[in-house]
Structures are given as structure tokens and as C-alpha cells.
Amino acid sequence: MNRRKSFSYAKYGYLFSIPFIVAFILFKLYPTIYTAVLGFTDCKGLGNTNWNFLVDEPFKNYITILNNPSFQTSLKNTVELWIMNFIPQITLALILTAWFTSRRNKIRGQGFFKVVFYMPNIITAASVAILFNALFAYPKGPVNDILMSAGVLDEAFYFINNKTATRAIVAFIQFWMWYGNTMIILISGVLGINPEIFEAAEVDGASDVQIFFHITLPNLRTILLYVLITSMIGGLNMYDIPKLFSLGGPDNATLTTNVFIYNQAFSGSYMYNRASAASMIMFLIIAVLSALLFLVMRDKDEIKRKKEQKAFAKAQRALAKGAN
């Protein structure tokens, strides 16, 4: 009787996982291996599917890519643009989180502010990039008009022709699109902290600033790490904004790795092999970051489970006591 019960249902676990596993192998695993393999071949030319392994120098594509000045620039740009957007983004998100969760001064209209701050994140990035391109138009454009009538500029400034300005704008767009998202995640993190800790600190006479630095921030550690790593992975994939706002220019100033990979593989010489090598380099970097995230999140689950076990044991003890 017992044996039949434990036997009969396990197969459904496998059965119901089949669609996922098949789709995963076909559309994720196979392309990953294929990309890795192409990195070791001579595959190039539009629509070419015939290729040979580079037997003499298997790592030729990787060496070419790593020594390619454009790839080096794109890697540097990607990291720099991410840092330029992430530092202001996390700073503002933390300040807003502190304000919106202040227990002494309740801020009204939070629902409205959250909806408005998050809005840019949901708009198609391609549209955002082109909208900003129009806003920074030269010689007559909305931003130039505002700055000139405010007296900041004497004459129209050609933003998209200036390396520093273009990079700053691309970083700003990323910041503008993501700080609302980060803020909402952080606020929900603060709401998840046990309120008794805050109450105890208040009773002890801690100021809002003290509470923020000594209680809120340390308790947000896991969530901050999560935000940091997911943002980094997202930042390493930056494509739409630099591609459509400034076409990677001027003079490669906003060329990111993904724009570089796209240009290598799908325009001009169709160098699938080199694009694959560049992809695999990015893949490795992202895999390391994912592994970090995996450790962080598993840790969180583990702690939760331990807490639950403790609470359960406590309840059992209380019950036993009650029975006595």
C-alpha cells in the first residue's frame, strides 16, 4: 500500500519538467555551446554556416579580440558607463528610501511618486533613446532651448558631437530609467525588517540618521548585493540606449560590448567567429557574477529556513510545556 503511493507520483515530476528541459536545451544550452564552438572557428560572411576549426591556433579569435582596440574601448566604456549610472542611482534610491520609510515624518503621495519614478523603466528603451536624441537636438532642441533661456548657455551646444557630454547623457538615461526600480526594491526591503528593532532604537533615543546607518543599512545588506549584481549584469548588456541614442559614437565614446558584438556579427564583414569570442568573454564575466548572486540568494534562503526551524522548535517546546 505504502510502496505504491510513494512510487506512482514521482514520474509526474519528470513528465511536467519535460517542456522546460527541451526548450532549454534547444534554445539556451545548444546556442551557448554553439557560440563557444564558433569562437574557435573561421566562420564569417553573411549567412555562412560552413566553418572549420582553427587547428593551428585555436585561440586566435580570442587573442585578436582581446588585442582589438575597439573591444578594449568597448569593455572600458561599458564598465565606466555602468559606474557613472550606478553610483548616483544607488545614492538617490537610498536617500528616497530613507525619506519614504521615515517613521517620524510620514511622506504623503508615496504611491504617486513610486508610479511616476518607475515609469521610465517600463517604456521601450529604443523609444527612450530616440526621444532623448530628439530632446538634445542641435542647433534647435528642447534642452538647448531650456539651457539658453535659463542663461546657462550662450549659444546652442552640439551635445551628441561631444564625447564627454554624450557619455554623461547615456549614463543619465540609464540612471533615469532605473533609480525608481531600485528604490522600490529597497523600500520593500526596509518594510521587511522587523519593526521591533526600529522601536527599540527609538526608545533608546537614536536619531533618524543614526537609525538609517546603524540599523537600516546593515539589514539591507543582502538586498543591496542583489541590486548591485543584477544591475552589473544589466549594465554589461547595455545595448539599446548607446546604439540608438548616439550610435556608439562620437568616436566610439559610447561603444559598449554589445554594440561591438552586434557590429562585428551583423554588419560589415559578418565576423561571427570574432563576435562569438567576444560574447564568450562577456559570458564568462557574467557567469562569475551570477555565481556570486547565486551564493547570496541561497544564503538568504538558508537563513530563512533556519529561522523557521527555530520558530517551529520553539512552538513545539511551548506546546510541550502547555501539555505539562
Binding site: 515530476g13 539556451k28 554553439y34 558584438i261 551570477s290
Partner: peptide, 30 residues
Amino acid sequence: YTWKLRDTFFTVIMCVMMIPTQVISIGFYQ
């Protein structure tokens, strides 16, 4: 359901969760 490879399967899902499709796009396109 409780099945033998369940935990392994879930670990694999967690591992590949963050891998973006862009980095495997060349193989996918081919």
C-alpha cells in the same frame, strides 16, 4: 512531487537564471 533529480534541476535553474540571451545570440542566430 518528490523526485530524485529535483534539487539538481532547481540548482541548474538558479544558475542559469541571470544569463542574458544577448551573449548567446550568435549561436542562436546561426
